[in-house]
């Protein structure tokens, strides 16, 4: 599993542009909202959690199509399925690598963008924690969609159609945590639910993903 993570990270490091594109997409999308809505700080502060979260959802979507497709094309995926190591573990490794490449940078970048929206230090902290819990969830659920649409006509668009409805709970609790903190309710409940969803997904998602991949490899 560690070898897979190392390998995927190396591949990502050799093709920096793909990673950076998703990151800049995140930056640009969040910066478009103030331009479209207007620069009043109170309004921006109110919509900030939602905007940052929606942009994060879309940015992680960009990397999903590449999670399995190159390995599928050159036959690596087939070898992984045949390897003595459990396939689920290897898939989990790929998901971790995807998160490190496309989720973690978003978490680190989000507070900088949050400042643009006039969020205070406490809200920024909650935003980072929520994203830290939520982005792995996005990678895990997204992996199922990526595996299902592997080698399918119009896979990219289809992927977003399949995965985005499943992202709704993460969006609600993630953005809700920040909003609850801003309105003084405390973010504990939202964060606990987000962590519970993550625990569920860690258990079930690799399993569903391997099942889907085996179907694609048949």
């Amino acid at each position: 599993m560690l070898a897979i993570i190392r390998r995927d990270l190396l591949i990502a490091a050799r093709r920096k542009s793909e990673v950076l594109t998703a990151l800049f997409f995140f930056v640009i999308v969040t910066s478009l909202f103030p331009l479209g809505i207007g620069p009043e700080p109170t309004l921006l502060k109110k919509i900030a959690p939602g905007v940052l979260w929606v942009a994060a959802l879309l940015a992680t979507m960009l990397g999903l199509t590449r999670m399995f497709a190159p390995d599928h094309a050159d036959g690596t995926l087939e070898q992984m399925a045949l390897a003595p190591t459990p396939f689920g573990l290897l898939v989990a490794g790929k998901v971790v690598a995807h998160w490190l490449v496309s989720g973690l940078p978003l978490v680190l970048l989000a507070p900088v963008l949050g400042i643009q929206f006039d969020l205070d230090a406490g809200a920024l902290g909650i935003l980072v924690v929520a994203l830290l819990l939520g982005t792995p969830l996005l990678s895990l659920v997204g992996a199922i969609g990526a595996a299902l649409t592997l080698g399918v006509r119009g896979g990219g668009v289809l992927l977003s159609l399949l995965v985005l409805p499943l992202y709704v709970p993460a969006l609600i609790f993630g953005a809700g945590a920040v909003e609850a903190h801003i309105s003084g309710l405390g973010a504990g409940g939202h964060l606990s639910l987000l962590a519970a969803l993550l625990a569920l997904a860690v258990f079930f998602a690799p399993w569903a993903t391997t099942a889907a991949l085996r179907i694609a490899l048949e």
Partner: peptide
């Protein structure tokens, strides 16, 4: 949306 996703996946 879930129904539409299911139909779209099967059709693709």
């Amino acid at each position: 949306f879930l129904y539409i996703g299911f139909i779209a996946l099967q059709a693709a």
